[in-house]
């Protein structure tokens, strides 16, 4: 053991100098990668804020597009309304189904029954939205024409695994004692679920729904296939009868059609959409922290 002098100063010496350099380089690289991601986000947000922010006005939010495609002025009011309607309808469809699936998985299903259902949710979750869109196109639109409802159906399928997953996670957090206490009082299983378990998991359900809404609000592939043929100068509420104007398609179309005026409007619409998505994510994150803290007591 005499090979080393343990009394010499404790500074880095010998090969530790080189190892320290490697250590610093690798940590520096990791830090640079994180900064790169933040810079990319910053550049994106800056571009949207700078180019889109200048488009923003009351008129932009309250008027429909002008008659002529390349004319200046007008706004995206009809697209905002159409997006809101389609996303709302999708939520109305997906929320109860997603919650019911989560209830079945956490409260009732045997391991054997849960397997294929979880697999189906995972596969739906990983399914490209363009595939879901062309599925609805083939099933309903070909031969009949687009409607807002069909687009809502596609959005609902996209929302389903998201809502089922977050709901499942928060149901799993509900303490077993709470359920047992209710059973012990002679309260039936489904009354317990409806009266005790679901209310306790409400925070998680709301979080998941907000996230799902934020996500599908920006979905473009289904809109391209299922809600892209409409009179863009008008506002329509006829969700079951015709395709509705919507923000994602508006952004896509304005950017593709080119021309300074249209691209500027595309940035304006992008600004509106990004603000909505970021606020929704922020709210969901805050709710998520609050509800998990309440559930786990941390």
């Amino acid at each position: 053991m005499a090979s080393l002098d343990y009394t010499r100063p404790l500074t880095a010496s010998g090969n530790l100098r080189r190892r320290r350099v490697v250590d610093r380089l690798m940590r520096g690289a990791a830090t640079a990668a994180a900064l790169a991601a933040v810079v990319i986000l910053g550049l994106m947000v800056f571009a949207i804020a700078q180019r889109g922010g200048s488009q923003l006005s009351v008129a932009f939010l309250t008027q429909n597009p002008p008659e002529q495609l390349y004319a200046a002025g007008g706004g995206i009011a009809n697209a905002i309304i159409g997006s809101a309607l389609m996303v709302a309808l999708a939520t109305i469809i997906a929320l109860p189904i997603g919650v019911l699936i989560a209830i079945y998985l956490t409260e009732f299903a045997t391991a054997r029954a849960a397997g294929p259902i979880r697999l189906a949710l995972d596969l739906l979750y990983g399914m490209p939205t363009i595939v879901i869109a062309i599925f609805i196109l083939g099933l309903l639109v070909v031969g009949h024409g687009q409607t807002g409802f069909y687009a809502s159906l596609a959005l609902a399928i996209i929302m389903l695994p998201l809502i089922a997953r977050t709901t499942g996670e928060s149901l799993a957090l509900v303490p077993k004692e709470l359920r047992d206490a209710s059973h012990a009082l002679g309260i039936s299983r489904w009354r317990t679920t409806v009266g005790i378990t679901i209310p306790s998991a409400l925070g998680g359900i709301v979080t998941g729904t907000i996230l799902a809404v934020a996500r599908v609000a920006g979905e473009t592939a289904p809109m391209l296939l299922l809600a892209s043929v409409f009179d863009n100068t008008k506002t329509s509420f006829n969700i079951f009868g015709q395709a509705l104007p919507n923000i994602p398609y508006e952004i896509f179309n304005l950017a593709e059609s080119g021309g300074t005026v249209n691209v500027a409007k595309a940035w304006g619409a992008a600004f509106v959409l990004v603000v909505f998505v970021l606020i929704a994510n922020f709210v969901a994150r805050a709710l998520h922290h609050r509800s998990t803290r309440m559930m786990t007591g941390r």
């Binding site: 100063p9 404790l10 880095a12």
Partner: peptide
């Protein structure tokens, strides 16, 4: 101190410390 060297002096490398 460790063998007379202050363990928390500046310039001390914690990796070198743990190696010993």
């Amino acid at each position: 101190t460790y063998h007379g060297n202050d363990l928390y002096a500046s310039g001390v490398d914690a990796v070198e410390v743990r190696r010993r």
